[in-house]
Design a binder for these strands. Structure first.
Ligand code: FES
Ligand code: FES
Lengths: 152, 152
DNA sequence: TTGATTTAAGATTAAAAGCTCTTTATAATC
DNA sequence: GATTATAAAGAGCTTTTAATCTTAAATCAA
């Protein structure tokens, strides 16, 4: 798995929030998110707490509470979410697991891997929540593991 | 981590064997490999058993026994090793963890990810053990986590 | 034939990741 | 103020991955 499960869920939830905020204002409850996306409520809560601590989301307790994007949706990239949840390890670690990946002491895959992982990073960096949430609506892309038809 | 630890070890050991076989003939003992590469002997044994079962290595018990490449080194790619140990999941799974990755029901990252993972696959497929072991010797690339100087 | 050496196989333990449960703090509404 | 809805925090359980340990089987050499 390239991203952790927590990271997958964090991205899906953030995209859902961004999509909601295209039309409505205010907070989205985590309970609602967990039901719509079919993600464990408590697990999702913890993930979104991390995103809140990292300044990507803003949260509010009590009735009518929930989470919302802390910045404009075009100023948040998928890369921001990956960094916040999984850290930068995928983009700095040796693909063969050797310590201290770099040009000084390269492993046999280093130069090829360095290029691929740069592409990977660009891919995440060029996808903003604004643009991607737009595509989700226009192209009716899925954000959950529900089979077509079931649940909405 | 993009590859499992078992896969990292399997690749490093296979490269070491390929490098040895450029000059010497016969079996390389797993004990020797585990010491040179600083990998747990029993763990490495299990990984190489898998590669033997997959027809990539050939093994022999008893004194003077060990493992050797079952095919010519230019007919084994790193991709063969990844498939044998980790399977093809990285190259077929949804980057957001949704079930049934494909063009029919794409997730918001599908088309970009499909391209990057194809590059990743090409990268592994274009590296044969022969070529890579050659580079390791010529460029003095490292295969172990020993710091420079320590242990050879 | 016996003893040493080596891989094979499987049981066991340890660590990490994934997930659930409970309790607490905060805020809105009645 | 009481009640209810919500996020925050952390303890604890489960599953997967990583690593170790033990025993068996095969092979070689003396
Ligand atoms: S040293 Fe291995 S990928 Fe950089
Ligand atoms: S459906 Fe998500 S990457 Fe293919």
């Amino acid at each position: 798995m390239i991203l952790s499960r927590a990271c997958n869920y964090g991205i899906l939830a953030s995209l859902y929030i961004a999509k909601e905020e295209r039309t409505k204002t205010g907070y989205t409850s985590i309970r609602h998110l967990s039901e719509e996306l079919n993600i464990s409520f408590h697990f999702l809560t913890k993930i979104l707490q991390t995103l809140t601590a990292e300044g990507i989301l803003h949260s509010h307790k009590g009735p009518k509470g929930g989470v919302m994007l802390a910045r404009n949706a075009d100023e948040i990239t998928i890369l921001d979410l990956v960094y916040a949840i999984d850290g930068e390890d995928i983009f700095t670690e040796c693909v063969l697991g050797l310590p201290g990946c770099g040009n000084e002491e390269p492993c046999p895959m280093h130069f090829q891997w360095a290029e691929v992982r740069e592409n990977l990073k660009d891919m995440f960096e060029h996808k903003t929540l604004a643009e991607t949430a737009g595509e989700v609506e226009e192209m009716k892309l899925r954000l959950s593991n529900f089979v077509r038809g079931e649940k909405q």
